[in-house]
Amino acid sequence: MEDWSNWLGPAEWQAVRLSLRVSLVATLASLPLGILAAYALARWTFWGKPLLNGLVHLPLILPPVVTGYLLLLTFGRRGAVGEFLEQFGIVLSFRWTGAALAAAVMAFPLMVRAIRLALEAVDPKLEAAARTLGASPAWVFATVTLPLALPGVVAGSILAFAKAMGEFGATITFVSNIPGETQTIPSAIYAFLQVPGGEAAAGRLVIVSVALAMGALLLSELLARRVARRVAGA
């Protein structure tokens, strides 16, 4: 019987573990801001709303290399934000935390869009009824809006996680391709394809990447159907 524990080599396992770590941190760290941005776009009316919507979705339109370069200019050691953070011992460029930042930025539009659609599906009359009973806006959001939109929040988080797992262009531009530090699955595939005899290792990582992505998409689809049934039955 084949020993599946040895199916991936040490360098491949290292890339898989780092990808999972980077994607999980990117998703969890961006989730609060994603919920806030989605709520603002779904419910608030304010000057500059189209600009906010454009900024949120800009990573989907820009070439990933451009996004990575902008991150390097902003959060690099000589960047305005990066130089300030370095005073507190926080360095993002050429670190796995920078890979998480790049993945979070690239996955943010997918997360916000899924959460926004879920929030827009919540009946405002339910929120209004809670407010007439004396509940504060924050309490209404925490006890009425968010629970009803929770499937969308979960779906958006899963999509963001899957997108972060596959992020390459912005990551390699911002934090390079350092084994054990910033070499995620896409970066490892690229590196293996540059050396003779690396096709087999790259192929195994491709299989892992496809399996993770398909699993995330299927789970997201199941949650989306649950939202649709809830809205239809409201």
Rank of each mutant, 00 (worst) to 15 (best):
V22F: 06
K49D: 11
A29S: 08
G180A: 00
M214P: 05
T171L: 14
L8A: 04
I35Q: 01
F108Q: 01
L212V: 09
A232F: 06
L8V: 09
A155W: 01
P109C: 03
P10V: 12
V22Q: 08
F46S: 13
A142R: 13
L219G: 09
P32R: 01
A107Y: 00
R131N: 08
A103H: 05
L71A: 03
S23N: 02
V206C: 04
R21F: 14
S209Q: 08
L218R: 11
L110F: 10
F141I: 01
L55P: 06
E167T: 14
P32A: 13
S136T: 15
S220D: 03
T173H: 00
T182V: 04
L60M: 11
L117N: 15
V227W: 02
R77D: 10
L20I: 11
M106N: 02
T67Y: 02
R95E: 15
A107D: 04
L62A: 14
T74A: 13
K49I: 09
A216K: 03
P196M: 07
W96N: 05
G54K: 08
G54E: 05
T184M: 10
F88E: 14
L72N: 03
A37G: 07
L73Q: 14
L55Q: 13
P124W: 04
Q183R: 14
G203L: 15
T27K: 03
S30R: 03
G48M: 10
G98H: 06
S93L: 09
E181Q: 15
L223V: 07
F94P: 07
V56M: 13
I158W: 00
L85E: 11
A129W: 09
A155I: 08
R225N: 12
R116I: 05
I35W: 04
A201F: 10
A155T: 02
A160F: 02
K163G: 01
V175F: 11
P10L: 12
F46R: 08
E83M: 12
L101E: 02
E127A: 11
F46D: 11
E12F: 06
A38E: 03
L146G: 10
E199L: 12
I61Y: 04
L150Q: 13
M111N: 00
V144K: 06
S19T: 15
Q183N: 07
L150H: 12
L28P: 02
G156W: 04
W7H: 06
P179H: 08
R204T: 08
V65M: 10
S220K: 11
A188E: 03
F88L: 08
A103E: 04
A80T: 15
G68Q: 00
I115S: 03
G180H: 10
I158R: 00
L217E: 10
A40H: 07
P50A: 14
L36K: 11
L148C: 08
R204C: 09
L36T: 07
L18D: 07
F192R: 13
F84S: 07
L148F: 12
A118K: 03
L110T: 04
I172D: 07
T182P: 01
A200Q: 15
V208D: 05
L51M: 13
R225P: 00
V81K: 05
S157L: 05
A104K: 00
